[in-house]
Design a protein around this nucleic acid. Structure first.
Length: 565
RNA sequence: GCGUUCGUAGCUCAGCUGGAUAGAGCACUCGCCUUCUAAGCGAGCGGUCUCAGGUUCGAAUCCUGACGGACGUACCA
């Protein structure tokens, strides 16, 4: 249900009937309950251009607003606001319709497009660490959201599988022989050991360097070893994805090395476009008004990640056919992307209509405001962090003694992982975010637990009720009215979140919804004896729609729900 | 130095095209369980929206400058 469009249309019609010209009508949610459900602020701006008194203009419009459909009442207020109240019966009917629909009345894009979402992108030489957490979580949500809204989403995991450090790692893997796979269980340890060998043994170091050259020249034996190494390392990532309920699979992997063959062509094509200039021995693209060029080939002939990104961009636009490409990458790389996007457009590698977006996010901080590290200053492995989340969640569960071990384990996983993901998604992605265990595992405030708890309470009602419900809704009071309107806003909110690639709109909405429901739940008894059947059915229907909306919303965020907490 | 970005309650954060008395949660103080999950709900307390100008009917939001922080600043990714 595109609620705002519905109201916009009614008001736009009123303008036509009143003979007043207006470009676009955009209502917003009322800032306070006293001001109704929605408000239209555009009169003031219009009055300015028409040089008319805003209140008089609003008064002229008012009689033309159709009060037979969605809108029950419209009033002029303040300097020229138009406050709008919706018909309770209309809200009720639309909620009933949403309840009948598998998708809760959320339409798919009329013109779906192909969208590439590039996220996670771990480095194969290292274990996944907290630096990959935000990209992985946010990217997966963005992809889920766009899928839900009907776009054809192509997830891309641009793993780092190329570079000089692989020579060292492969040399060490070969030295270890068959036992190598075993010691690779801990990639961090493996890397350290290899590094020690590299630093202390000259013949090993030379061998490592030879391997780099051999891999690059396509030596089959070395490539096999390299492939083996990547497979194992990627397996580690998949363990993390599994724990985190991330939907990335092997099919989504398009490693850096995938673009190797195309890199010389990128250079040639840039030359053909006349964009390339040599500077200090490096091949560069100088952009207008920018001091620092984009270097695409080093003085020694090697390529850089700008080169790979250009190759990837044109592959995605031209081979995959993407019309929108989202890079879910750390905000620190925003200049890099701005430049690479410009080069991609200027060179014609990517046509002008393709929307290129850097979905930037801030750094993860600890409670004291410093970048998130282990006590001794090392990087925190993602596996360890997630395991800790589950342990902490388990400890926080109230009736853990009364649960079966498997039940407890499952519940702890859902709560712990949900908490980590929700905490990340619930703040504006561009700002740095403070990682705080106590806050994220709290039942209070805008947390996944609060939502999961609200959901569980709803399920508890239906367990007790135990029968099929009639999907007939009668809005009985203020709180039910607000709950109904909130439920109908689901679609608008999702579309806005997709447009802004802003998951925190979803969490903010879910929190408001759950909070409203909890108030409704406190005030309006459902299964009590004194409640008449009509009211009971109506309240059950509202509860059911709320439950399904919370579940659907959390599902897009990649967070699970449970029937009992 | 230059560039990007941020600065909202004691803390963590919302605040959509410029709109009404700037909102939540935590913390603190009170009140509400013989009744659907009280891991909940209600009420109170708390703000010169960093500062100074400007644009206008109206600015947390737009512009300029200052101060403070984060990040980036050519052959790493």
């Amino acid at each position: 249900m595109k609620l705002k469009s519905e109201i916009n249309c009614i008001i736009k019609e009123a303008f036509q009937k009143a003979g007043i010209e207006i470009q676009t009508v955009m209502v917003t949610e009322a800032t306070k309950p006293e001001f109704g459900d929605f408000q239209f602020n555009g009169i003031m701006a219009l009055a300015k251009t028409l040089k008319q008194n805003p209140r008089e203009l609003a008064q002229k419009l008012l009689p033309h607003i159709d009060l037979t459909g969605a809108i029950a009442k419209a009033e002029v207020a303040g300097p020229g606001f138009i406050n709008v109240w919706l018909h309770p019966s209309w809200v009720a009917r639309k909620c009933e319709e949403a309840l009948q629909d598998k998708r809760l009345g959320v339409a798919k894009h009329e013109n779906p497009i192909k969208v590439v979402v590039d996220y996670s992108g771990p480095n194969m030489a290292k274990q996944m660490h907290v630096g990959h957490l935000r990209s992985t979580i946010i990217g997966d949500t963005v992809a889920n959201l766009l899928v839900y809204l009907g776009d054809e989403v192509i997830r891309q995991n641009h793993i780092g599988d190329w570079g000089t450090q692989f020579g060292m790692l492969i040399a060490y893997l070969e030295e270890q022989g068959s036992s190598g796979s075993g010691s690779l269980k801990d990639l961090e340890q493996f890397y350290k050991e290899a590094k020690v060998r590299f630093d202390t043994d000259i013949s090993f170091a030379n061998k490592a360097r030879e391997y780099v050259v051999k891999i690059q020249s396509g030596d089959q034996h070395c490539l096999n070893l390299w492939q083996k190494f990547i497979d194992i390392s990627l397996g580690h990532c998949e363990d993390v994805y599994g724990k985190l309920c991330i939907k990335l699979t092997r099919e989504d992997v398009k490693a850096e090395s995938f673009y190797n063959e195309d890199l010389p062509n990128v250079i040639e094509d840039l030359i053909a476009q006349g964009l390339l200039k040599e500077s200090d021995g490096a091949q560069c693209v100088f952009l207008e008004g920018e001091e620092i060029p984009v270097i695409v080939q080093k003085g020694d002939g090697g390529y850089l990640y700008a080169t790979t990104d250009l190759a990837a961009l044109r592959y995605r636009a031209n081979v995959l056919g993407a019309k929108r490409i989202c890079y879910v990458v750390d905000a620190r790389q925003s200049e890099h992307f701005r430049q690479v996007f410009t080069v991609a457009k200027e060179s014609g590698f990517v046509s002008k209509e393709v929307r290129l977006e850097h979905v930037a996010f801030g750094t993860m901080m600890d409670k004291s405001g410093r970048p998130f590290k282990t006590r001794d200053g090392g990087t925190v492995k993602l596996v360890d962090l997630l395991d800790e989340a589950v342990i902490r969640a388990k400890e926080s569960i109230k009736d853990k003694e009364n649960l079966e071990p498997e039940e407890l384990e499952n519940l702890a996983k859902i709560i712990g992982i949900g908490a980590v993901k929700y905490a990340d998604l619930s703040i504006n992605r561009e700002s740095n975010y403070v990682f705080d265990w106590d806050k994220m595992l709290s039942f209070e405030g805008n947390t996944s637990l609060y939502m999961q708890y609200a959901y569980a309470r709803i399920q508890s009602i239906f367990r007790r009720f135990g029968k099929e419900i009639k999907r007939r809704i009668v809005i009985g009071d203020e709180i039910e009215h607000r709950l109904g309107v909130m439920l109908l806003r689901f679609e608008d909110m999702l579309y806005r979140a997709a447009e802004d690639t802003a998951p925190h709109h979803i969490t903010g909405y879910l929190y408001e919804l759950a909070a409203l429901f909890t108030r409704f739940y406190e005030q309006n008894p459902i299964l009590k004896e004194e409640v008449c059947e009509e009211t009971q059915m109506s309240r059950l229907a509202l509860a059911q729609l709320t439950g399904r909306t919370i579940k659907e919303g959390l599902d897009i965020l990649g967070i699970e729900v449970v029937d009992k907490i």
